[in-house]
Computed example of a mutant assay.
Amino acid sequence: MDIFRLDRGTAPLLISLPHDGSHIPPGIAARMRPAARRSPDTDWHVARLYAPLAQALGASLLRPLASRYVVDLNRPADGHALYPGRRETGLVPTIGFDGEPLYLGPDGEPDAAEVQRRVNAYWRPYHEALQQELARLRARHGRVVLWEGHSIRSRVPMLFEGRLPDLNLGTADGASCAPGLQHRLESLLDAQDRYDSVVNGRFKGGYITRHYGRPGDGVDAVQLELAQCNYMDEESFAWDEAKATTLREAIEPLLRACLD
Rank of each mutant, 00 (worst) to 15 (best):
A121G: 11
Y83S: 08
R75G: 09
Q116F: 09
Q116Y: 14
R38D: 08
L61S: 11
A77M: 15
L104A: 15
L91H: 04
D43I: 00
H80N: 10
R138N: 06
P26E: 07
R140D: 12
D20V: 10
R140Q: 13
I28Q: 10
G27R: 15
E88H: 00
P93S: 04
Q131L: 15
L104R: 12
G142D: 06
L146S: 02
D98V: 01
N74V: 02
R87F: 13
I28W: 04
V115Q: 06
R31F: 05
Y83M: 08
R87H: 12
I24M: 01
P40L: 11
H141S: 01
A81Y: 14
R37Y: 10
D41C: 00
H23P: 14
I28L: 08
L65C: 13
F97G: 03
S151I: 00
L62Y: 12
G142A: 08
P110S: 13
S151K: 03
L130K: 07
P110N: 08
G142H: 08
D78R: 04
F97S: 05
H141G: 01
D72V: 04
P84D: 03
Y103L: 01
R136V: 06
E88A: 06
A121I: 11
L65V: 13
R86H: 15
V115K: 01
Q131T: 14
G27P: 15
I24L: 07
A30I: 15
D111M: 07
Y122A: 06
A113N: 14
A77V: 12
G149Q: 08
T42V: 01
D111W: 05
Q131I: 14
A30K: 13
N74G: 08
R63G: 13
A51E: 12
D78P: 01
G21Q: 09
S22P: 03
I24A: 03
H23R: 15
V92M: 03
L130F: 06
E148T: 13
L57Y: 03
R136C: 11
A56S: 09
E114V: 08
R118F: 10
T94Y: 09
P40N: 02
L53I: 10
R117G: 05
V46T: 03
Q116P: 14
D98P: 14
L61A: 03
Q55P: 11
S22C: 14
N74Q: 04
A112P: 11
P93D: 07
G21F: 06
P34T: 10
D20Y: 03
A30F: 13
A36E: 02
R140S: 01
Y122N: 06
G90C: 01
D41P: 00
E114D: 04
L53C: 04
A112C: 13
H127D: 11
T42S: 01
S67N: 05
S151T: 04
A36W: 00
L102E: 00
G99A: 04
R86C: 11
R136F: 05
R118C: 00
S67C: 06
G149P: 09
L82Q: 11
G142N: 05
W44R: 00
